[in-house]
Structure formats: structure tokens, C-alpha cells
Design a protein around this nucleic acid. Structure first.
Lengths: 188, 188
DNA sequence: CTATCCACTTGACAAATATCAAGAATACAT
DNA sequence: ATGTATTCTTGATATTTGTCAAGTGGATAG
């Protein structure tokens, strides 16, 4: 199984010593199926990386639950807005299966600024990469149909489609479970 | 008319001396109607803030043009991904009317790191705010109908609806011009 | 003033997607 | 294993949105 250092390297370009200092600040925790890593309204005072398992990021609106994303191995867990601005978290993050995570506290994260000279540069690229991912996603909603979004996601994250309840995938793709079920049938 | 410093303050929390140092690095330019601030594939080596006028941010796909956003006074102009990672710009940015802009070169922007001690903190919050805006937008596509997205945008940016060709607004909302025309009629 | 060009609107129709309800499959607990 | 959730599928139908084509209206150049 790829370790924390492997995942850190996929987000950030780091030298071996930087990697070591940063990795040391993470601790390893278990998150049982059904448990929350974060809940709406709480303080987002830590950042997690999924080692194993699936975590659903979602929000309750008046009329329905909206799944924003499902994080798999290597995926990021944090309410970035809350983490940066200290505002109450918008998102719930709940384990869909028994998970193991690496976690760094906000305080430890920021203290890296004084330990790793290039840290602000690293962090900046990290946030910008998150931005870039969202930009792609917005774009997909502006010019793709539900079917095209399904295909696009399926190509990029095929493992999700075996493991995640379809209702959540549907919400994450901006369609109803029935529509997703029909698209899937049509395409196979 | 609100000045550059006013707009900077809306993005970033700055002390008066910081504000002064940063503002000094911007220069003031005109962008004629139809001219491009940035084109797809170019280097995104500067960041602009709209003082006056409208700038459309869009991209050409095989089958259609997709308008991602329209920047009005105070709005931001940069391909953030390109600006941070040095990759070729994804977006075109074209003036819809005669515009005046404040612009800072990438090099000058980064040199602020050594002039303003808190700069990395400021910059980080800036990027995170951009992220947060996109997150809201993704969310709107996951749970709102075209009609609801129209209403939502109309409440937040009513000025756009007087000034911008509807075809661009439609694309930005992820619908056809005909649909937008009908929604507008229905709602008024 | 008039011709021309856009952008916008409207209508008729088609396609995509949602809704509601029922049945089938699957997972879960006892 | 068996019964009970729950989730997924399917069908019928409604609604929303898209497409295509024609028309209207307003701006602008000559």
C-alpha cells in the first residue's frame, strides 16, 4: 500500500528532507464506517488524507442531501474554506467504509511554515491545485450533459463505480439516481 | 469611483502600509472593447483587477464557446492555474466594453513576498477565497435547476443582466440562450 | 432615413432528465 | 439461514431543457 509520503508527493513537489519533516507531523487514525471526520458547522481544524476506504463529502439542504465528492485513497479531507479562514465548516465528511487516515492538525500544519522554508510556496501550490480541480468541474457542468459527465467521471475514477452507492455518485454528478441507473445500463 | 486600494481590501485584509506597497506594484492600463487580456495557450504572467467595464472569460470547445464568467468592476482577471504553475492558460479573457484595469506582473507579484512579510499569508487567503467561490458554484450545479441558478445569479449580480449579452450569461449559467430568454420572461 | 446586422424572442417540436410508484436485488441483523 | 432494510432498477408519465427555424426589434453605418 502506498504510504503517506507517496500521496504527499502527488500533491506537492517536495525534496526528501521536506517530505520527512512534513510527514512526521501527520498521525494515523482509524475512522469507522459511519463515523464523521467533520460535520457542518464544526471547526475545520485538521486536514486528512485517505489511506484506505471511502469518505463521502456532503451537505444537507432543505429538500435533499447533496454529495459533493467521494474521497478515495490519496484523497483529501478538509473544508478548505474553514481551514484557511476559520469559518464554520460547510461540509460533512462521513466514512462510507472502515477507513484509515493520515491527519495533521491545523496548528501543526501552520507551524511547518517555520520548519520548512519553502512551505508557503508548497502550500500555495496545494491550494491552487484544489482550485484547478474545481475549475475543471465547473467547466464540465457548463458544457456537458449528464451522460457526458457520467462518462467523464467513469473514465477518471472507475473504481468509484464498484464501491460507492450509486445514489451518492448520482448526486455528485448532479443527477437523480434513476437517471444514473439508466445511463449506466445504456452504456454497458 | 472606488480605487484599486478599495478593491484590494475586499479581497485581502491588509494594513495601510501593506496596502500601499502592494498597490504601488500595479499599473493602470486600458483594454479596448474586443481586445484580449489573455488568450488560451498563452502564458498567464499577470493578474488584473477590473476598474471599469466588462471582461468575458471563456473557452472554445470543438462544438461551442463556453463562457465561464464575466468580470465586472472589482473582478479578478487571471488564469490562476497558469499564474501559479506556469502552465499555458486555459481561458480567453476579452473585453466586452472599453475597460480600464489594474495589472500586476507575475514577477512583481512574487517579489512582494520579500517586501511584505505577511505576503504569503495574504496570497494564500486570496487563492483560498477563489476556491471558495468556485465551491459555491459547483454546489449550485449539483442541486439547482436552470431556473434556480438564474434566480440565484440574478439576486447576486443584477447589474450583469442589464449590461451583458444574454447569450454569454446563458453559457455562464450552463443553459442555452433560448432557455434563459424564456426564464427571464416567465419571472418578470 | 433606411438598410443591415446582431441579438433576442417566440413557436413547434424533440430530447433529456425528473418524478412517482412498484418490483427486484442486495446487504444486514438476528 | 431468514426476514427486514435498504438500494437499485424499471416503467409510465410529467417537466424541463434543448434544437431548429422563423420572426421581431434595436443599434449602427452609410
Amino acid at each position: 500500500m502506498p504510504g503517506l509520503e507517496h500521496f504527499l508527493k502527488t500533491y506537492l513537489e517536495l525534496t526528501p528532507p521536506e517530505l520527512e519533516v512534513i510527514a512526521k507531523r501527520f498521525r494515523h487514525i482509524a475512522l469507522e464506517k459511519g463515523a464523521f471526520f467533520l460535520q457542518t458547522g464544526a471547526f475545520s481544524d485538521r486536514l486528512g488524507i485517505v489511506e484506505q476506504g471511502l469518505v463521502r463529502i456532503f451537505l444537507q439542504t432543505e429538500d435533499k442531501e447533496v454529495t459533493q465528492w467521494i474521497s478515495t485513497a490519496g484523497g483529501l479531507l478538509t473544508d478548505l474554506t474553514g481551514f484557511v479562514f476559520g469559518s464554520p465548516a460547510r461540509w460533512n465528511m462521513q466514512a462510507l467504509s472502515d477507513c484509515s487516515l493520515w491527519v495533521i492538525e491545523k496548528e501543526a500544519y501552520y507551524s511547518l511554515e517555520s520548519e520548512v522554508p519553502r512551505f508557503h510556496h508548497i502550500d500555495r501550490r496545494f491550494v491552487a491545485r484544489c482550485f484547478s480541480t474545481l475549475e475543471d468541474r465547473i467547466f464540465s457542468h457548463l458544457h456537458m450533459s449528464a451522460e457526458e459527465r457520467y462518462q467523464y467521471m467513469f473514465e477518471r475514477q472507475p473504481q468509484l463505480f464498484n464501491q460507492v452507492p450509486l445514489q451518492y455518485l448520482a448526486s455528485m454528478l448532479g443527477m437523480t439516481p434513476e437517471t444514473l441507473s439508466r445511463l449506466r445500463k445504456k452504456i454497458i
